[in-house]
Each structure stands twice: as C-alpha cells, then as structure tokens.
Design a binder for these strands. Structure first.
Lengths: 224, 224
DNA sequence: GCAAAAGTGTTGTGTCTACACCCATGT
DNA sequence: ACATGGGTGTAGACACAACACTTTTGC
C-alpha cells in the first residue's frame, strides 16, 4: 500500500470571556511538545467526515451544543509540522456565545488570543488565522450571532465586538449599521438600569442564527 | 497501523477564453466515472506539501509558469465522494491570464463554467466553489492581475471582468474604481484604434502582481 | 437637581453608479 | 463630415463616522 499521511482535525474555539477574545487550549502531557498548549482535536476516524471528526473531538472538551458556528479554515501540510510523523491537519473555526460556560476538563483552559502561551506545532499560527477569519466576517456577515447571547443590549454587544475586533467600536454606529442591514431586531423588552442609574436599554436579538453575508460590498455589482 | 484515507489534490484552473470563464478538465478513461470530466490533480506524494503536490500535478497538464495565482480552496471529506476508496481531496484555485494558451494534453480541454459537462465525483460543486471565490475576490482585491495580460486597455479588462463575474460591468466605473484604489496604473503607451476608428486607448497594467486586499470594506473599522 | 447610561438628530465625507458630454481616430 | 470607440465631468444615492443633543433612569 502507498504510504499515507495521518490526518487530524483541529478546532480554534473562540469565545469572548471577561471582555477578552479567548481560545480553548489543552496542555500536552506527552511528547512531542509536552507542556505546551495545543488546539483541541485528534485523528480522523475511519470513514468519518472532517466536520464529524472535529465535532466528535470537541464533545470531549466542551458541550458541542454550545458551539454556535463551525466552519472549515484551512488544511496545513508542511511535512515538518509534526516532528516525527507525516501529518496533515484540517483546522476549523468554532464560536461559542459569551454567556455559555461549558465545563471543560482539567488539562484545558481558555487563553486570551492576544497573549498566547507557548504552543505546540503550528497551532499558534492557526489560531491567528482563525482570529483573522472572525474579524473579517464580523464586518460583512451576521456572524456576531455566534458570539452573542440569545438577547442583549447594544452595550453588551459592543463589548463583544470590541473584544473580538481589538479596536474601539462606537455603540451608536454599531447599532445603526446592524439595524440598517436587518441583522438585529428589537425584542420589545427593556433592561433595567444598574445602581448608577441611566436610561433603560432596549433589548435586541439577531434576526437569524445562521451565517448570512449582509454586506456583499459588491463593488462592480450587477445593475439593479 | 491505523487505517488512513488516501489524499488527493485537485485544482480548479480558471481562464477567460473567448469571453467565457473556462475551467481546465480532463476526460477520465478509466472507472470510476469513465468518460466523465474531472479536475486535474492526483495523489499526494510522500512528505510533499499540498501546494507542491498540486503544482507537480499541474505541470503535467499546463505550463505551471502560466498559473499567475494559486490558493487553497477547501478540503472535501465525504466518505461517499469516491465510490470505492476513502479519499480526501484538497482543492486549489488557480488562475491563468487570458492571453496564455498553454499546450495541454489530448485528453484535457477547457470548458465554460456556465455549461459544464457531466463531471466525476464532487468536482462540479468544487468548480462552482472556485468560481464563487474568484467572483468575491474580484470585488475586494486586485486578483484581476491573475486573469489579465501584462498590459491591456480598459475595454479588454472589462471583457475579462464581465466573463468572470457573469454580469455587465461599465468600463467607466471599472476604471475609476481600480484607479482610485491604486490597483491599476497607466503604462504611458497607447493602443491604436481598429479599422472602425475611435480614440486610441490608454494602456494600463496592474501595479502589483501579488494578491492584495484593496477594499477592506471594514465597516466598524478602527478610528484613524 | 445631578450624574449616568441609552438613544436620536444631524452633518460631513467618501465611494459608488449613472449618464451626459467631450476627444481622437478611420473612412 | 460622421461613425466609432475611449475618456472625463458631474450629479445623485448611499453608507458610514463623528459628535452634539435629548431621554430616562438612580441617587
């Protein structure tokens, strides 16, 4: 039989926690890269889809039902990426809403993406690719639904966008952009102000909980 | 040893020919899918990168130097995608400039993407994914450089964009958008008019021949 | 009343489309 | 002259950022 590479699936699971964009990592106990942090994942099972595989792997780390969005990122193939094995890796991007606090095993932890620990293999660069994909899609899709809770105020949503994008976002404009595009809608409820007072905030939700391109940005678009 | 899937690389090679967006296909002689048309590609070589692999496979079909841009599309893993073998496929998108007319083998041919012949495996859907990626990137990157010749008039470039996008594009606006973004520059030369007369056309070229995002479209972008 | 937080009104800017108009050439 | 194809000028639509201002609450 022809020699074949092994194939693993990996996931960049991102969640905004404590106003920081975090990634779920586990600490390797064994060589190679013992003591370093790695993305969750594992070997592709026989006659298994890549997506089924990563969902199965994740089930061991987080409650998969908490993953509100999952998409394929890219497949890495550098023969040197694993020191002792010829291994391909297909990476996925997974997003978990802010409020969820899935129980995770002992050896796993959430790490801020802007301050990653020493990582195994090429996982740091894969993590950064995942963040870039998220940042890009926040601008032209409704992907925020996968980071936000079921319902929220604009302030809460703003905090999520700020953490994910890594730069200031004005609440005023965030609201107007997302409402204009039909991404957000009001639930009709209001949130009571805190001790400090202030006007009660309107509660919003994402109109759709599936990925949609909301700003085709289609320059050179077809005439109406 | 753990059972492992085979892994192939495939390429969606696109070129505008005769004002139509075409894809390079070869006709399968053997089962499965004998007589149907397939994307060029083949098995991943030992300790070979996916990109190296597809370049090697392509070298047998087209002069690889003609491929002005190559990027990874996605990896397909449906266990039913190959009738008799557990096979993963990583697809690439490759673009060839209009003028190039690489010699290709007997059993390969260019087919218009809007009128594909019966295709093998999941190659039709991969081809359509490739076209979507191209169409999207034509709007917000300088990727046109990979479809256009070294230098060209706006009319010629317009024909290429029309073929690739599949809808009318106004020459006036195409020029202004691309010049405003700094994607195009004039060479200073002029093209003599044809028999029918007309004003001589200015000759342009792409300022860069590497992929660049020219319209970050970054709504919610950071304050200057 | 006053501070705090939320939300609206308004203005200015930049990018894009559409269309009228002007330019340079061949016959 | 005039048809043909290339190019420019300009006006309108739209989306967005910025910021002043108003609303609604707690204290």
């Amino acid at each position: 039989m022809r020699t074949r590479p092994t194939h693993v699936t990996l996931a960049v699971i991102l969640q905004v926690r404590d106003n920081r964009l975090c990634v779920l990592l586990w600490e390797r106990a064994r060589e190679p890269y013992a003591g370093r942090w790695a993305l969750p994942g594992g070997y592709l099972g026989e006659r298994e889809t890549l997506e089924d595989s990563i969902r199965r792997q994740l089930a061991q780390k987080v409650d998969v039902r908490e993953v509100a969005h999952l998409e394929q990122l890219e497949t890495r193939s550098d023969p040197e990426r694993h020191p002792s094995e010829w291994q391909l890796a297909t990476a996925y991007l997974g997003l978990v809403p802010t409020v969820a606090d899935p129980s995770i095993p002992e050896d796993t932890a959430w790490h801020p993406v802007h301050d990653l620990p020493p990582m195994a293999f090429d996982h740091e660069s894969i993590t950064l690719s995942g963040r870039e994909r998220l940042r890009a899609k926040l601008s032209y899709t409704n992907i925020g639904f996968a980071l936000a809770p079921e319902s929220f105020t604009i302030s809460e949503l703003r905090a999520i966008y700020v953490a994910a994008l890594g730069h200031p976002v004005a609440a005023t404009n965030l609201q107007r952009v997302l409402v204009r595009r039909g991404v957000l809608e009001q639930t009709g409820e209001q949130r009571r102000p805190g001790r400090a007072g202030g006007r009660p905030a309107a509660v919003f939700r994402f109109r759709s909980r599936g990925l949609e391109v909301t700003d085709p940005s289609a320059v050179l678009r077809p005439p109406a």
